[in-house]
Design a protein around this nucleic acid. Structure first.
Lengths: 108, 108
DNA sequence: TGGGCATTTGGCTAAACTGGCAAGCACTCC
DNA sequence: GGAGTGCTTGCCAGTTTAGCCAAATGCCCA
């Protein structure tokens, strides 16, 4: 694999990696439902340190998946690209497929 | 976040994480084009140790994204769920969006 | 200006991920 | 049976990631 191709896949992987964490998936899911949330709202929902949530948000923002908007003392985050929701559908269908195979193993 | 919800997002994240690596993205992309490939073909294309490729394949398989089929001394891998290709489209559109913003910053 | 709240950043530790080498396993062909 | 090929697994660094606490920053309001 030449350097250019390598770089292409690395760039893609950076974006995928930004979503490959339970907390960050939750954030994306939540933002898809509620349009926008500030850090403290998400922190309360998730139940970890606010500094941790802030870092997760920074990663998502850095990948270009969400955007932030300061409003007074708070920072509100919202989705930048709706298509990330397609990920969920696909992941769900992979999981359904896995479950079906599991079942098949049990029966046989 | 209660334990059940937590578990749900962890399961999803496991699948996303399986694809969140340049080499594994390349493999998925390649399998989408060529239907199936054995480990040695992929190893040659990628240019890392075969043991490394084998481990990447094991991760994808474990997540339920690809399946393997032994045929003689070789093991052929192929996609199990076509929808993973939607990921690429979306990632591409995130990247395009990022590039556009970058451009805007340069101009202004 | 000063206290207080919301958020980010620095520093640290524990855990997970990667990749190479070498050893082990499975299959093929002689 | 034995050599050779294809693949997987064990082991060992080196690197990255996740989370907490504490400190710094930014904003609002008295």
């Amino acid at each position: 694999m030449d350097a250019r191709t390598q770089a292409k896949y690395e760039a893609r992987a950076r974006i995928m990696k930004a979503m490959a964490h339970p907390t960050r998936l939750f954030i994306v899911d939540e933002l898809s439902r509620c349009r926008e949330r500030c850090v403290c709202e998400l922190t309360e929902m998730i139940g970890v340190d606010m500094s941790t949530v802030s870092r997760h948000l920074a990663m998502l923002k850095n990948a270009g998946i969400i955007v932030d908007e300061k409003r007074g003392a708070q920072v509100y985050y919202s989705l930048r690209v709706r298509c990330v929701l397609d990920f969920f559908e696909c992941v769900e269908s992979v999981m359904k497929c896995n479950a079906k195979d599991q079942q098949r193993l049990l029966v046989s």
